[in-house]
């Protein structure tokens, strides 16, 4: 088939800045995006820079943006991505500085991974043999160990786009790999660090990382699991944790969300500065008639809902 691969190019040594270059080529129907780029590199333009190695989605080298989303070039079928004109657009990952063409600098990515002390920290003398652990616990971690550190999740992360301090989905998924590891003894300490600013509560739950992850790691789900874990070990005193708590309480109380009470209860009724912070927005809303109803009604038979909450919680406590 005939395709046009439009590549966003950049070389700091020339003065062209970033620009698009189109490559026309004939390639077999089942070719991948990587096959096309390799063909370009070998037959047309040896100056096109990219990383690639395994061709089978395990080395994590060839993450790049194809038609606006981060993917591995090696397991992306060209024919699935071309538009009516047979064109695809290929760019380097975002949220990374570009070294040249499709090659990005991953130093900051690895610095963030290092930030979560990504090594097993067991306690006490090592057993003579292996640690005893259930197969379920190991299988559960296998989903995260499947991470190939390609950076796709970081590239498309909504929060990293506005805040370079955010630890980010890849590093947080890596952190989960230890918090969830029964052999690790530092879970509470780890959660304490992750609970802080730029950690688990800064994720905006947008699912970009889940969508683009080529290995099914679902980093955001891991971040949510870390939040649940942080709350359960007693790190309830963050805005995020309180937000989840209050949210749950309000739904339990009336069946649905009371938006007037949520922000107030989240920041705390005695947290005057934070409350004042909401005030201008509240005032603007009031003037426009946009304020939530002051008198919040319960759903019919709300007692059923309250009972359900209690029952589920009791059963969960029984199961440990």
């Amino acid at each position: 088939m005939q395709v046009i691969v439009s590549v966003n190019r950049f070389n700091p040594k020339d003065n062209n800045g970033k620009y698009w270059e189109d490559y026309n080529l004939e390639i077999e129907e089942n070719a991948t995006v990587l096959d096309a780029l390799i063909k370009i590199r070998e037959e047309t333009d040896g100056s096109l820079a990219m990383r690639c190695s395994c061709r089978s989605a395990i080395c994590g080298s060839c993450a790049m943006r194809v038609n606006g989303h981060a993917r591995l070039a090696c397991n992306t079928k060209l024919a699935d991505m071309t538009d009516e004109a047979g064109m695809i657009k290929v760019e380097p990952m975002t949220n990374f500085p570009v070294i040249k063409d499709l090659v990005v600098d991953q130093q900051m990515f690895w610095d963030k991974v290092k930030q979560v002390s990504p090594w097993l920290q067991s306690e006490g003398p090592e057993p003579k043999g292996e640690y005893v652990a259930s197969n379920e616990s190991m299988n559960q971690l296998a989903g995260v160990m499947a991470c190939i550190m390609c950076g796709a999740c970081v590239s498309d992360c909504s929060v990293m786009e506005v805040d370079k301090n955010f630890i980010g989905p890849a590093a947080l998924a890596k952190a989960y790999r230890f918090v969830g590891d029964p052999r690790d003894s530092k879970s509470v300490e780890r959660l304490g660090v992750l609970n802080e600013y730029s950690g688990i509560w800064d994720c905006t739950r947008c699912y970009e990382c889940v969508e683009v992850c080529p290995k099914g790691v679902a980093p955001m789900d891991r971040i949510m699991a870390l939040r649940e874990e942080a709350i359960s070990v007693g790190y309830g005193d963050t805005m995020g944790a309180r937000h989840a708590d209050v949210f749950s309480d309000l739904v339990e109380d009336s069946g649905w969300l009371d938006e007037l009470r949520l922000p107030i209860k989240t920041v705390g009724i005695f947290n005057l500065p934070a409350l004042l912070n909401f005030a201008p927005v509240g005032l603007r809303a009031l003037v426009k008639g946009k304020m939530p109803a002051i008198f919040h009604h319960n759903v019919p038979n709300v007692q059923n809902v309250r009972n359900l909450f209690k029952r589920v919680r009791n059963d969960q406590n029984k199961d440990g």
């Binding site: 292996e130 640690y131 652990a133 190991m138 296998a142 590891d181």
Partner: peptide, 8 residues
């Protein structure tokens, strides 16, 4: 011991 999550 280093942390490899071998199947059990």
């Amino acid at each position: 011991h280093m942390g490899v999550i071998f199947n059990r």
